[in-house]
Design a protein around this nucleic acid. Sequence first.
DNA 1: GATTAGCACTCTGTTTTCATGAGTGCTAAC
DNA 2: GTTAGCACTCATGAAAACAGAGTGCTAATC
Lengths: 342, 342
Amino acid sequence: MRKMRILQAIIDDYILTATPVGSRVISLNPEIALSSATIRNVMSELEGMGYLEQPHTSAGRIPSEKAYRFYVNRIMHRAMLTEAEKQFIRTCYSTTLDKVDEVIKQTAWAISSMTRYTSMVLAPQLSAVKLKRIQLVPVAEEKALAVIVTDAGIARDAMIRIPRDMDSLHLEQVSHTLTERLKNHRLDEINALLIPEMYEELKEHRDFLNQMLESVKRSIDKGPAAVELSGTTNILNYPEYSDMEKARNFLAAVESKDVLYKLLTEATDLEFSVRIGGENETGNMKGCSVVTATYRVGEQPLGSLGVIGPIRMNYARVLAILGHMGKSLSEVLTTMYEEERK
Amino acid sequence: MRKMRILQAIIDDYILTATPVGSRVISLNPEIALSSATIRNVMSELEGMGYLEQPHTSAGRIPSEKAYRFYVNRIMHRAMLTEAEKQFIRTCYSTTLDKVDEVIKQTAWAISSMTRYTSMVLAPQLSAVKLKRIQLVPVAEEKALAVIVTDAGIARDAMIRIPRDMDSLHLEQVSHTLTERLKNHRLDEINALLIPEMYEELKEHRDFLNQMLESVKRSIDKGPAAVELSGTTNILNYPEYSDMEKARNFLAAVESKDVLYKLLTEATDLEFSVRIGGENETGNMKGCSVVTATYRVGEQPLGSLGVIGPIRMNYARVLAILGHMGKSLSEVLTTMYEEERK
DNA sequence: GATTAGCACTCTGTTTTCATGAGTGCTAAC
DNA sequence: GTTAGCACTCATGAAAACAGAGTGCTAATC
C-alpha cells in the first residue's frame, strides 16, 4: 500500500536528519517515483489520520508518536547486524571478566557505543532464584564464611561473626538444618520462612542468623543500585537535546537510578519492550523512547538491558543490537554461574 | 592593603555572579566605601599587574588565573562549615554501609551535593599496604577460600579452585609457607617475590598460586576503575558551561575515568592540592579547577577525594568541605578495616 | 596627593525591520 | 489519478537602530 511506503520513507528520513521532511525529498526517492504534488496530497491524508504533524504551516512534516508506534508494529523489518558488529560484541566479552558486575558494566558500555544512545543494564535479579544449599565454613576464631548456593550458582558468600564457642561440627549441623528447611524456596521468601518457624528452634544462634539474613537480603534486593548506566552524554549529540534546558532535564532524570530501575523492571514479562514518548509513564521520559530486552541465566529471565534515546530512534537497529547483546550476555552469565555452581 | 581588599571583593563577587564586575558594585560594598572612580583607578592598576582582565573595553573586569592563585595562597581564609553541614555529613555515614565501595560512593555523593560541583573519590589504593597473613580455607570439594590479611585489614577474599587431592592439612601448610615468605612485604611486590623464589619450591601448586596472584593483583591495581564519580551534571548549572560545546567537552573528559584517576593520583603527597585552570596538565582540564585532598586508613594515606568545577570556584568552601569529608571518611574506613582485622 | 564628580566614548545585547526561501494548499490541465 | 503552476505562509538570517553598562580622562574638591 502506497501510503504506508511513503510514511516509511518519511520516518526513515526524519530518523536520519531530525528536520521536518518536505514533499520534495520524498519525491526524489527512487523507490517512490511520484511528483512532489502527489506526495503532498498523501501527506495531507496522513496528517488527517494522525500520523504526521506540522510544526508550522510552511515547514515539512514530522512523524507523530502514533506513526512511530505503527512503524514499530507494522512496517519495520528487523535489521541485521553486520559481521563487523558481531565481531565487536564478541571481542567485548573476550577480555577476562571475572565478576558479574564487570560483565554488566562491559555490556552497558558496548550497547551505548554501538547504538550511540544512552544504555542501561540491570544486574541479575536473584529474588526469584531458588536456594539449593547453605554452607557455613569456619575461617578464623570468631569468623565463618556463609556460602549460599542457588539454582543459578553462587548468589553470595559472606563473612559473618560467630560465637567463640561454636565449633566446626556445630556449624556443620546448623548448615544442615538450614539447608533442609530452606531448600527449593525462593530467596525472597526466606525472610518470611525463617522468622516464625526457626527462631524458636535455633534461637541460641539468632545473632548470626540475623547476619546471614541481612546478607541474603542485600544480595537480592540491591534495587536501583543494580542498574549500570553508560553513554549518558551521547544524548547531547542529538539536535533534539541541543536545548540546554531539555538536556539538563534528561541528564537529571537519568542520574537517579530509581527511574532507570523502574524502566527496566516494568516490562520484564516480554522479550522486548518498546515505549515511545508519551507511552512512558515513568519519570520525565515523555520526551524519549525507551527500548528494553530481557536476558536469561540458564532458563530463567533474570535481568534486562535497554536504551534511552530520542523518539526518532532507529528502532530496527536498536532492537537488533539489544537482541544480540542480550543473547551474548545470557551465554556469558550462564557459563559464569555454571562455573561457580560446580 | 587596599588593593588586596578590592581584589578580594572583585573575586568574591565574580565567584557569586559569574559576570564581569564593574566599579559600581564594588563602590557600593560597605566594606570598601570608595567612589566608583577610585575603584576604577585601582582596577586599572590591578589589570596592569595581571590580576584582572577585561573581556572588552566597556565591560567590567574578571579575575585572571593569577588572581585566583593569589587569592588561594594569600587572601582566602579557611571557611568553617555550619553545624547543619556537619550534621549532614554525619547522617551520610550513619546508614549502615558494609562494603568499602558503598562508603566511597556515598562519599562522592555527599561531596557533590554539598559543593554543587562534580566530585570524585579514589577508593583505597592497596599497593603500598603490607601483607600480614595468607590463609587458605577449604570450602567444598575442589574449592578453597583465600583470605589475604593486610596491615589495614582484609584486602581481599577470593574463591579459588584447588586440586581434588589436596586436604585441609596440606592447605594449612601452604598457607603457612606463603605467609612466612611474604609477610611484611608490600602487596605490589608480591608478584616479583613469588615468581623467582617460590615457583620452584611450590611448583606442584603452581595452578592455584597463579589464581591467587591474579586475585591479589586485581585487588591492588583496579586503577581507574577505583574512581567513583558523582554530580557530573552539576556543571551544567554554571553559566560558563551554558555553551553546549564546552559542556560536551567537559562531560566527555569526565566520562573517561583514566583522566580522573590521573588527577587524583597526581598530587597525593600533599594534604590538599589546588590546580587552577591552566595549571592542570592532565586531560582537557585547562578550563576548570581541580581541588583534591587525601584521606587515610589508620596512619597511611591510601586515597584521595576531590572536586572539579569552574575556575571561579568557591575555593574556601570547597577546601573546608573536602577537609571535613576527608577526615570523616578516614575515620569510617579505619574502623571498618579494623573491624575486619580482628 | 588622594578622591570624586562629570562627561564623552566604546562596545555588547536586544529589538526591529526586511528579504529570502522552503514548503504548503489549491486549481486547472494532462 | 497525477502533475504543473502559482499565490500564500512563516521561519530563518542579516542588517540596522537602540539602550545601557562600563570605562578613561579631566577638572574640581578635600
